[in-house]
Design a protein around this nucleic acid. Structure first.
Lengths: 198, 198, 198, 198
DNA sequence: AATGAATGAGACTTCATTCAT
DNA sequence: AATGAATGAAGTCTCATTCAT
C-alpha cells in the first residue's frame, strides 16, 4: 500500500501518455480526425474513454500534439539524409523507403492537409511546414551534387525535388491503406523520374 | 387537368436530380461519405435537405449511384484511348490528363476504397472494377506496341501499367485538394517511369 | 370548352369530398391518426396530396369531420333498433351484426378514444357521445321488456347493457384487423351474456 | 484500480435496464411503436435519450426484447392455471383476472399484432405464439373436465376456449386505456359465455 | 381545381465530453 | 488516477403542409 513517489507517478503518466499517443497515431493516420472515434483510440490503447481526458483536453488537442510530433520527426528524418553513406542516388533511395512509424506520420500530415474537421491550430502548423520550406531546402545540395555527377537528369533541381516528393507523398497516401488493388511501384521505377534512365 | 404536363415535370426532375448529383459528387469526392453532411450537399445544390429525399432514398443510395456512374465513366474513358491519334506515348499522355469531372470521379472511387462508412454495395461495385481487371487489360496491347517501337522501357508490361497508374491515381488523390504545397509533376516527368528516358 | 356552371362544380366538389372522406375513413379506422400518412389517403382516394388541402384545412380537420359523421351514424343506427321486427333477442342480435361501414365508424371512434395525437376537438366530441348518454338510454326499454319476457337474465338493465356493449365494442376493435389468430365468437355465444342461457 | 467494482456496476446496469424496460413497456403498450417517442420513454424512465443507446441498440431492439418477455410471461402465466386450487370454473376465473403487469404485456402483444412499423423480428415471434398453439392446447384438458362436471356448456371445447379468450383479449385491449366510458363487465357475466348459466 | 415539387419542424441515432464513484 | 455511466448537441431521415405552375 506504499504510495508511489512523485517520480514514479510521473513515469506512469508519461508511459500512459505515450501509449495513448501511439494508439491515436495509428488510427488518426488511417481514418482521419472525423473517421476516428475516441472509443477506438481508447480500445486500441487499452484504457477507458474517460481516462483520455486526464491526459488530453480534447480530441482536437490530441490531434494537434500528434501533428507537432509528426512534423518534428519528418524534419529530423530529412536532415539525416547526409549521414547516410553512398552516392546521391543511394541516399535518395534510402530516404524514399520510410519505416512504418515514418509512414504513419506522413499519412497523418496528409490527413490533416486534406480532410475536414481539422483544428485550426493543426492547419497552421502544417502550413509552416511545407515541401518548399523544408524538404526542398534540405535536399537541394544533394540534387545539385547528383546532377554534377550526371547521376540525375538535368533541369531545375528545386522543381525536380518537389515533383519527386509529391509522387512519394502521394504513393504513401495510397499505400497506407494497404489496398491490394494498387501495385506499389518499386523504388527503381520511381527513381527514373529523377535519373531519367531505366 | 394537370397543371404541368408530364414532359415538363420530367424535365424538372431530371434537372434537379442532375443538380443534386453534381453537388454531391463535388463534396463526396473531397470529403468522403462520413465527412459529407447532407446539409452541405443541399446548400451546394441550392435546395432544402428534405428535397434530397424526393430524389434519393438515402445518403448511402446517393453515394452508390455516384460510384456506379464514376466506374462507368472511368471505363469508358479508358476504352477511348485507342481513338486518340498519335504514338503510344502520345496516347498515354492524353489519358494521363483527365478533365476536372474525370478527376472528381477518380477521387470519389478513391474515397470509397479507403474510407469508412462506405455502403456495402459500393464496396462490391468497386471490387469488381479494379486496376487489374480493367485498366491493365485494356492498356496491355498499347504498352506492348510501345515496347516494340522502343518507345517504352522493357520489362513486364502489366507490372509497368499498374505501377504507372498507381502513381497517376495517387497524384490525383493529392491534386484534388488543390493543395499548393505540392508541386504537381509535369506529364513528361511522369512518363519517364514508362519510357525510362528523360 | 364550355365552363361548368356553378351547380355542376358544386357537384364535383361534393363528390371529391365524399371520395376523400371514404378513403380517409378506411385508413384512419385501421391505422389511427398517427399511423396514417396523408399520402396513404391520397393514394387510396386516387388524388394528389396537394388536393387534399383544397377540401380540408388539415389532417386534423379531416379526422374531426369523420368523427362527427361516425358519431351521428352510430346514434342513428342505434335508434333504428325499434324498427326491427321480432323479439328483443332478435332485435339485439340484429344490432350486434353491424355492416362494414358501421364497423369502420365504430373503429374510428375507438381509435380516437385510445390513441394519441387525437385533436382536442375530436376528444370533446367523443366525450359527449358515450355509452352512458346514448346507447344505454336508448336500449334500456328494450332490455326491460326482454327481462319481463324472461328472455333476458335479471339484474340492473343499465349495467347489463353497458357490459354487453363493452364486449361488442372490444370485439369489433379486434375484428377490424382481421387477425386470424383470433376466433370471432358467434353471436349466440355472446348473447349468453345477456340471456344467461346456452 | 476500478472505482466501482464489477458487482456494483452490474447492479447499476441491471437496475437501469429494468427501469428503461418498465418505462418502455408502459408506453409502448398504450401507444404502440410508432406513437411512442424515445423522448417519452426517456422522460418516463428519468434518463436522457442518449443513455437509452447504452442499453439498447435501437428503438426496434427495445421493442423486440419487450415482446419476447411478454410472450414468455404470458405462456408461464397460462401454464400456472393447473396449480390454482378449486373447480374448473374457479381456475378459469383466476386466470381471467390478470395483474396490471400482465395486462401491459397482453396489450403490448396486441399492439405488435395490429399496428404498423412493427419490426419483422417481433412479428415472427408473435406468429409463433398464438392462441391456437399455446392457450388452446394448454386449456383443453381443463375445459373437457369442466364439461364432464357439467360446469361448462357442451360443444367443441377448442372453439369455446378460443371464443372466450378472444373476448378476454378484446376486453383487455379496451381496459388498458382505463376509459371510463366503458363499463368493464364483471367476471361472472363473462363466464356465462362458457357456462351458459347466469 | 389540380398537381407534384419543395420546405421545415421534429424524430431517431451517434458520439465527444462530463460526472459520480 | 481510473472507470464507465450519463448527457446533449448535431446529423440523418420522415412527413404534414405550402407553393409554383
Amino acid at each position: 500500500m506504499s504510495p508511489l513517489n512523485e517520480e514514479q507517478l510521473q513515469h506512469i503518466r508519461d508511459e500512459r501518455k505515450e501509449q495513448i499517443m501511439e494508439a491515436a497515431l495509428k488510427i488518426f493516420a488511417r481514418r482521419g480526425i472525423i473517421g476516428t472515434k475516441l472509443s477506438m483510440i481508447a480500445i486500441e490503447a487499452g484504457i477507458s474513454q474517460g481516462l483520455l481526458y486526464h491526459y488530453f483536453k480534447s480530441k482536437d488537442e490530441l490531434f494537434v500534439i500528434l501533428i507537432q510530433q509528426a512534423i518534428q520527426e519528418s524534419i529530423d528524418n530529412m536532415k539525416n539524409i547526409y549521414q547516410i553513406p553512398g552516392s546521391p542516388i543511394e541516399k535518395l533511395k534510402a530516404i524514399t523507403q520510410l519505416d512504418s512509424e515514418g509512414q504513419l506520420y506522413f499519412m497523418l500530415i496528409h490527413q490533416a492537409r486534406t480532410s475536414d474537421g481539422v483544428p485550426e491550430k493543426a492547419k497552421q502548423l502544417i502550413e509552416q511546414y511545407s515541401l518548399e520550406s523544408y524538404v526542398v531546402d534540405i535536399l537541394e545540395p544533394l540534387f545539385i551534387e547528383g546532377q554534377k555527377a550526371k547521376e540525375f537528369a538535368p533541369g531545375d533541381p528545386r522543381k525536380l525535388i518537389s515533383s519527386y516528393f509529391t509522387v512519394i507523398t502521394a504513393l504513401m497516401t495510397l499505400n497506407i491503406h494497404e489496398d491490394e488493388a494498387y501495385e506499389m511501384p518499386e523504388v527503381d521505377l520511381l527513381l527514373r523520374i529523377v535519373t531519367g534512365r531505366p
